[in-house]
């Protein structure tokens, strides 16, 4: 079991030198691979409970960063701390620094609404609004006071989410009348319509069948050309297939007997899946966990 690679790795296998160039990638956007966001010693508390402790990792530009780990280890918690969605949970508090373009996201004068306009989010369960397909995508544009060429922007977003061909004739029908996979791509279209910098995805495929999942995975590769993506997934094959970097989290019990999420290892996806540095990572990816 252990000597056979569990998954088929297509992401970069070797540690990229300066610039983090993907082998064979041709049209690499500028800034590719530089650090866009950085977590330093981030701990997230829910009330008195420290759910995740001391997480430090980068998020690199135009790359896909995957977060994996067992349930309850704090992946979603860390993901939500990247665009201040934790602010919506009463009692939640973030310690440490999360920077975006070098700015501290939790600085006093930072407006969480502006943060979310730059750093969008796609959720586990497809959650289109009970509105038409068009209005779903246009919603973000409207709240951003974008009035010109809404039609073009909607089309562009739907094309970007690989949904245009399936819905172009029925933009006026309800977003809820689509299949689960289409709904999730609609949610992606809704997110990219406002042209964010970073897209956070929390288990975006866990409610989808394999075909819909592979469509979204293809889409992620496409999206990485324009956006920086952070994805939480339970599916290790998926992490290996789509991501360039992988962060492995686990839950540890401290001396006081309290469970905390910890980042065990952050590295190139290839490294994590073929040659993990930490025993716990190896156990997890080879299925010997718990």
């Amino acid at each position: 079991m252990t000597d056979r690679p569990l998954v088929n790795v297509v992401a970069p296998v070797d540690a990229p030198p300066a610039g983090y160039a993907l082998p064979g990638a041709v049209d690499q956007p500028t800034g590719y691979g530089s650090t866009l966001m950085e977590l330093s010693k981030v701990s997230v508390f829910y009330g008195d409970y420290e759910a995740v402790r001391d997480t430090s990792m980068p998020v690199r530009k135009h790359q896909i960063t995957a977060m994996i780990g067992p349930s309850g280890c704090g992946k979603s918690t860390i993901l939500r701390s990247l665009n201040r969605m934790n602010d919506l949970v009463s009692g939640a508090r973030v310690a440490g620094r999360v920077t975006y373009h070098g700015q501290d996201l939790y600085a006093r004068d930072v407006d969480p609404i502006q943060v979310r306009r730059h750093i969008g989010m796609v959720f586990q369960k497809p959650n289109p609004f009970p509105k038409s397909i068009f209005d779903n995508v246009a919603y973000g544009l409207r709240i951003n006071k974008i009035k010109d060429n809404i039609g073009d922007r909607v089309e562009e977003a739907l094309r970007g989410a690989a949904l245009w061909d399936e819905v172009k004739g029925k933009l006026k029908t309800s977003g809820l009348a689509l299949s689960g996979g289409q709904q999730q791509r609609l949610c992606i279209a809704r997110t990219i319509a406002v042209r964010p910098d970073v897209i956070l995805m929390d288990e975006p495929c866990s409610a989808l069948d394999p075909i819909a999942t592979s469509k979204i995975e293809d889409l992620m590769h496409e999206l990485a050309k324009q956006y920086t993506i952070v994805i939480v997934t339970h599916n290790m094959q998926q992490a290996a297939r789509v991501s360039h970097y992988t962060a492995f989290f686990t839950a540890e019990v401290d001396q006081a007997g309290v469970r905390h999420g910890r980042l065990v290892e952050f590295n190139d996806t290839g490294k994590i899946f073929t040659n993990p540095a930490d025993k716990r990572t190896e156990d997890y990816i080879t299925g010997r966990f718990g």
């Binding site: 959720f123 959650n127 949610c187």
Partner: peptide, 8 residues
């Protein structure tokens, strides 16, 4: 949350 995540 979907709306708020879009910066609403």
């Amino acid at each position: 949350h979907a709306a708020l995540a879009l910066g609403a």
